[in-house]
């Protein structure tokens, strides 16, 4: 096995082009478990922890619209190797849903090492960063010596532990609109720490656009968006003038939203829970996160 330790992004991309089978390693919290247990013996490990460009985040206009002409929103470009601990410390204001999810990952030691880029690279249906990234409508930046492209998060997960990156590409960043409204994340597990989600949900309200984002985890072969639930809730809030009035949410709206969230799931029975339990839990998470988010929204009235 050869250990490649590039010290710039250009070097890293060249190394990946030269060795498409190289296994990238960032925080190592997934990769090292596989190596320690002999589940994987790659010919090349590609260490990304010395690539400074991947460890930065910045805010600005969307790269496709640098003048902000069609969308004046602020976008966060989160480098692939920014750790959960840093997301919590540095981005709880701009990416609150992702920061809430980050707080539930593993343990302090895991959050000090584990990264959002590694979570995307692993592409587990249970990855905790995925529901908030779906809810926020994020895009994944993939780069190679051939260039850089942005893949909508909806198209990124192609199967269980499979993603849209080509063999010569690295995940270089995630691009997500900075929050304009309340965001929530909740997950079900057996204890408060060190838990792979039995099921999880990220919710984002986008009052400026009159839209809603919902992503669910451990509920299907890949993380998925609950599109019908999003559409239903956005329409219900619009028709009843609730975005403007900020009145209490009718319980029937929350209940129907929850049913539609569960309908988006195609869960399985496994050691962590049954499919039926997961569907039930999703209705609970949906109602709960919506209630929290709506209370936030009402409380934040100018």
């Amino acid at each position: 096995m050869e250990f490649l330790a590039p010290s710039s992004l250009a070097e890293a991309l060249e190394a990946k082009a030269a060795h498409p089978d190289a296994v990238p390693i960032c925080g190592g919290t997934d990769v090292m478990v596989e190596l320690n247990f002999d589940r994987r013996r790659p010919d090349h490990l590609l260490d990304l922890t010395r690539v400074p460009e991947l460890a930065e985040w910045s805010v600005g206009a969307h790269p496709s619209d640098p003048s902000g002409a069609s969308d004046a929103s602020e976008f966060v470009r989160l480098g692939a190797s920014v750790t959960y601990a840093r997301v919590i410390r540095e981005l709880s204001d701009r990416l609150p849903g992702l920061a809430l999810a980050a707080r539930t990952v593993g343990s302090p030691q895991i959050r000090n090492r584990g990264t959002v880029g590694g979570n995307l690279g692993a592409a587990s249906p249970a990855g905790d960063s995925h529901p908030p990234l779906l809810a926020g409508g994020a895009e994944v930046e993939l780069s190679s010596v051939r260039g850089t492209r942005l893949v909508p998060i909806d198209d990124f997960f192609t199967g269980p532990k499979q993603h849209a990156g080509a063999p010569d590409e690295l995940i270089t960043a995630v691009l997500s609109r900075a929050t304009t409204g309340p965001q929530q994340f909740s997950k079900v597990g057996t204890r408060n720490a060190m838990v792979i989600a039995v099921t999880s949900l990220g919710l984002a309200l986008h009052p400026d656009k009159g839209t809603v984002g919902v992503g669910i985890g451990s509920a299907a072969p890949t993380p998925v968006r609950a599109s019908d639930a999003e559409g239903f809730l956005a329409a219900a809030l619009d028709e009843t003038g609730l975005w403007q009035s900020r009145n209490a949410l009718p319980p029937s709206v929350a209940t129907e939203f929850a049913v539609k969230v569960a309908d988006a799931a195609a869960p399985i029975d496994d050691v962590r829970g049954t499919a039926a339990y997961r569907k039930h839990a999703l209705t609970v998470l949906a109602r709960r996160t919506l209630t929290w988010a709506w209370d936030d929204y009402r409380g934040s009235a100018a």
């Binding site: 919290t29 090292m32 478990v33 260490d47 090492r113």
Partner: peptide
Amino acid sequence: EQGECGSCTVYLDGVPVCACLVAAGQ
């Protein structure tokens, strides 16, 4: 050797991590 127990916790550049999950070269 899988990050679950923390008995291998060390400081790496001042940050507590599981040494079992850090590759030697890192």
